[in-house]
Design a protein around this nucleic acid. Structure first.
Lengths: 261, 261
DNA sequence: TACTGTGAAAGAATTCACAGCC
DNA sequence: GGCTGTGAATTCTTTCACAGTA
């Protein structure tokens, strides 16, 4: 019912493989076809590789092997190479990858060649933190608008940007070409805010409210749910405790890992 | 290399199936075995179901079908039933699930029957927001300690809890039985903070710093990387734009979805 | 009748392992 | 010799579809 992958959207796993390796300057159609074939899970990791590579570049590193990059990104090298193969074949056998080349190709695939303006809705504790978060603008996501329902906040600058009233969301988003909406409101308000963002034309939403948002198919939602993260950690604590109670013999658990007292 | 699943830790997919359905009051060993067999992906969803169910219970709902619960949680009903089957068979055919029963069983599986004290390290914008975030304590994760490296902050109460200096992390974490550490520091400090948390005995870490943390195998790390979330959204914006350029005929894209102008 | 619980099938993601190239 | 790129194998996850039951 909420399946986002359409019927005509077949996954072409071998699309990249079919292309000859020596293709000159890819066409827009090639990029398009390749981008569509990249698995979701790989996209998330590409963003991590990009960050690591940017750091490397700043330190003057020009070349890196899959093994090194994988280590720095916390994945194994086979997965890394597979992920990079979705982007294209930009490594040199026996040598490794050119850091700058890889950075620019990943940026292209992730669509970072254009700026994506962000609107934050809900200027409470979290909204404040997000408005002031330096990681957004520095990575090509300028915070272009802030909204809150409290009229007392309207006009008050937060992180250098004056807060708008939420009733102005449509006009302000259009004017400032907002492409990503961030919901940092209390849970009760989240769905209504989401609806307004969508009718304002925003097609990508990052949701911090602990609510499952209902949106049309063409809108992409990602959620960050702190309580859920905590509960996943809790599950692992519990599992570990269970293992300790069940499998531990002489203080040594599975794998010979010593269980801490 | 960073594989967290040990050699002796075989996944027993059919463990639950082998158990007879009429087993009386599960033993601790049963819970343990079942918990180990739950797929990661299902654990995250169980936390979402739990939240939805809690909301239902508050509204006085006592019974719910898989279809209804799935709709509210944003998944399809087959997946929901499969997920719940990992927890056990607590539904009634032809009727549905008793909300309270399900809540208590999910809580048990997620290890929420005990409290998990949380320490937040790095009391900047985000740290402030986290210290004040009501969603933690209300879900069984009391914030028990705050740490920062700035001596001027030491003793200042944030969200009702005085900030400690980071040098006291070991003693304070031990004393207050912290089981989850939250890293909200600048990226440069994150690995050092992580190391200190680990040597203080904290085995679960939620990391907001855009850094890949290196930890021993027995430590569980989850990360929330806002820039990565943004970049995933960016990828989808780009893909959509590509589709619009390539596949759209007469303003209608794949699946007959109208691409917005 | 209406809904759960679950084997079996299908589909994704990960890992292996090695051919191919520098 | 060293390292990439990738088919094939494996493992994990999702979905199907229906037997079973209140």
């Amino acid at each position: 019912m909420v399946d986002r992958r359409g019927a005509g959207d077949e996954v072409v796993t071998t699309a990249a493989a079919k292309r000859s390796a020596d293709a000159p300057a890819e066409s827009a159609a090639d990029v398009r076809e390749r981008a569509r074939a990249i698995p979701e899970a790989a996209v998330a990791r590409l963003a991590v590789y990009l960050r690591v590579l940017s750091g490397m570049a700043e330190q003057g590193v020009t070349t890196i092997s899959s093994e090194e990059l994988a280590g720095a990104a916390g994945v194994n090298s086979a997965k890394l190479r597979k992920d990079l193969s979705y982007v294209g074949s930009y490594g040199t056998r026996g040598v490794g990858y050119d850091v700058e080349v890889l950075v620019s190709h990943i940026e292209r695939i992730l669509g970072l060649t254009r700026k994506h303006s962000v609107a934050v809705v809900g200027i409470g504790n979290l909204g404040h933190a997000l408005a002031n978060y330096g990681g957004f603008p520095s990575r090509g996501f300028p915070v272009a608008a802030l909204f809150d329902i409290d009229p007392d906040l309207t006009g008050v600058p937060v992180g250098g940007i004056p807060v708008n009233h939420i009733d102005d969301i449509t006009s302000v988003c259009a004017e400032r070409e907002v492409s990503i909406g961030v919901i940092a409101t209390p849970p009760q308000a989240a769905q209504a805010v989401c609806d307004r963002l969508v009718s304002a034309g925003v097609q990508c939403i990052l949701n911090f409210a602990p609510v499952v948002l209902q949106v049309p198919d063409y809108v992409e939602v990602r959620k960050v749910d702190l309580a859920v993260e905590m509960q996943i950690l809790s599950f692992h604590v519990a599992r570990r405790a269970d293992e300790a109670a069940g499998d531990v013999v002489n203080g040594v658990g599975v794998d010979g890992v010593v269980i801490r007292p």
